[in-house]
Amino acid sequence: MQDNPRELIRVDQLSKIYRVADKQPGFKGTLSHFFNRRTYKVPAVKDVSFNIFPGEIVGFLGANGAGKTTLLKMMCGLIHPSKGLVNVGGFLPQRRQTAFLKEITLVMGQKQQLIWDLPPMDSLYVNAAVYGLSDEITKKRINELADMLELGEELTRPVRKLSLGQRMKSELLAALLHHPSVLFLDEPTLGLDVNAQARVRSFLSEYNKQTGATILLTSHYMADIIALCPRVICIHNGSLFYDGDLDSLANSLSPSREVRVELKKAYFPEQFVSYGEIQELNDRFVCLLVSRSKLTEVVGKILSDFEVIDLEISDPPIDKLIGELFLKGEIS
C-alpha cells in the first residue's frame, strides 16, 4: 500500500442514496404497498470529498443518522456507493479483494466477533488462520499487542466472563492481529467506563505512533476525539461541512471565550454590560462571554475596575458547542 506516497484514501464526490419503500399503515396500506410499491430516495451521504494521508488519525463527527457510519462502511467496502469514488490505498473497497482486506480492519463497538463461550485466545488463532499467519508470527504478535493493551490471563478466560473493557481490548487485539495499515473504528469506546475509555485511547495513539497505521474513527465521546484526532471531519445531514484541525473548529464554532470571575461583593448586571455578554450572574459570581480579540484588554479592565478574588478563562466545552450546532442544524 506504500506505492502511493501521497494520499492513502481518496474520497471524491461520494454519495449514497437509499431507496426507502413508503408504506401506509394498516392492511390496505400493506396491499397497495405490495402491488404498487412506491419508493423514495433518502440521501445518506451527499457529495463528500476529502483525502486522508498515511499515518493520520481522523475523527468523524456528526449527530446520530448524520451519515458517519455509512461513510465509514463505504470506505471499508461494506456499502456500495451510489455515486462518486472511494479509493483506499489503490483499491476499490467495494470489490473486497483479499489484498485489500488484509490491509484494513473494522472494529464496531456495539458488535463483537469473538466467540462467546471460549477464551479470546481461541478466536485469535482462528483469525490468524483466516489471514494465513504462521504460528510463530501469531504468537509474537499476540504477545506484543497484549503487552500494549495490558491484557494477560484475560486472554485465556471465556469471553462471556470478561468485563466490557476487557472484551473491547480483546476485540482490538483480534482486529489488529494481521497488522492492518488502515483501521476503521466505529464507536470503539461505546459503553465503556471512563478508565477503560482512556486505556483504549492511549493504546490507539501508541499503536499509531509505533506502526504508522492510519486510523479513522467515529465516536460519540468528544473526549475520544479531543485526545486522539488532530483532524476532524464533520458530517451533517450527509454533507461535509468541516474538515480541518480540531482547534480551529472550536474557533470557528465559537470565536469567544468564557471568563468566570469571583468578586468580593455583589454588583448589578448593568455594570458588566460593557465588558461582554453575560452568561450567568449569581451573587458574587459572574460568567461573561468575551470575544478572543478583546480578551486581554477586557480581563485587564475587569481586574482594575472590580475587586476580584478569582478569575478563570476557558473555552466553552467543544462537545457543547458541537451539540448546539447539530441542534440548530446551522452550517456556517
Binding site: 471499508c76 461494506l78 482486506l101 464496531m108 458488535k111 463483537q112 466477533q113 483466516v130 489471514y131 494465513g132
Partner: peptide, 18 residues
C-alpha cells in the same frame, strides 16, 4: 440481524465458506 456479517465480509476468506 446482529450485523456481525460485516466482520465476515471483511475477512480475506470466502464468506459462503465461512
Amino acid at each position: 440481524r446482529e450485523g456481525t456479517l460485516d466482520y465476515v465480509l471483511l475477512k480475506p476468506i470466502d464468506s459462503q465458506f465461512w
